[in-house]
Design a protein around this nucleic acid. Structure first.
Lengths: 125, 125
DNA sequence: TCGATATATTCCATTTTAGGCATATTCCCA
DNA sequence: TGGGAATATGCCTAAAATGGAATATATCGA
């Protein structure tokens, strides 16, 4: 009954917001921190939780650690990510998160500051 | 962000087993109790939890209280019930629950004992 | 090697959750 | 009206989850 772990990943506000953001592409911790407006240790903890249960993957690039959705994911997780896509259109929190994400991405494309090239290439910035 | 409540309904073992059973039709508490092999207060409490969050409905028939999936359900709940259907084929716990359910249903059809007519008509027994 | 930045972890207090057990409630029927 | 069956609830404890604050770790660059 490993799906219970998946649902536990999904049943917390910050984790759900993180997954919704990662749907659109990888992000590093500091940008998640910025977008979510949550304390950095919180973001880090929830990312750790998600990673421990296979809902996200991480990869270090220099000083940054990028989080992304794994390529191969459990069908139940996959299905619920699709649900999030629909839900995000109507939910204020999700929508605002995505707007902030877009604005962070734009800013970094403009100023070329923040992430290293390796990260930029991979779509974080 | 009301979906969090839905995921909370789904992230506990007994609740998930209950929902999987109710996919196949309504059941009263005592049969859920029998099928699940869980203490009656536990079953009752989890049912109360599910009902409080709109994941199930209940209706009293004499001494019995029938629980069923609501006709109108949140899209996310609906989607995950479909997932359960797939998962149940491969998961030992879910499958055994469904077998026990079938056997309870057969027994009651045979012996005409246990549920009142009103319940029987509605598919519990 | 030192300082700065990004991230993770530890410690701690609070809250939430789950389950066992006893008991209350509701309803039917004799 | 009292007893029995079905269900719900209250009380208690243990475990788990949450989050704040401080601190540790890792990496880079001067």
């Amino acid at each position: 009954m490993e799906y219970i772990e998946i649902y536990k990943c999904l049943c917390e506000r910050t984790r759900l917001r993180i997954l919704n953001l990662l749907r659109e592409g990888p992000l590093c911790v500091c940008h998640l921190h910025e977008i979510l407006g949550e304390a950095q240790p919180n973001v880090s903890r929830q990312l750790g939780y998600l990673r421990a249960h296979g809902a996200v993957e991480s990869q270090r690039h220099n000083n940054w650690i990028m989080y992304r959705l794994p390529d191969r994911r459990h069908p139940i997780l996959e299905e619920n990510l699709k649900c999030l896509q629909d839900v995000a259109r109507e939910d204020g929190v999700f929508r605002r998160d995505l707007e902030r994400r877009a604005s962070v991405v734009r800013r970094i494309a403009r100023t070329r500051e923040g992430c290293p090239d390796a990260v930029r290439v991979r779509g974080c910035c």
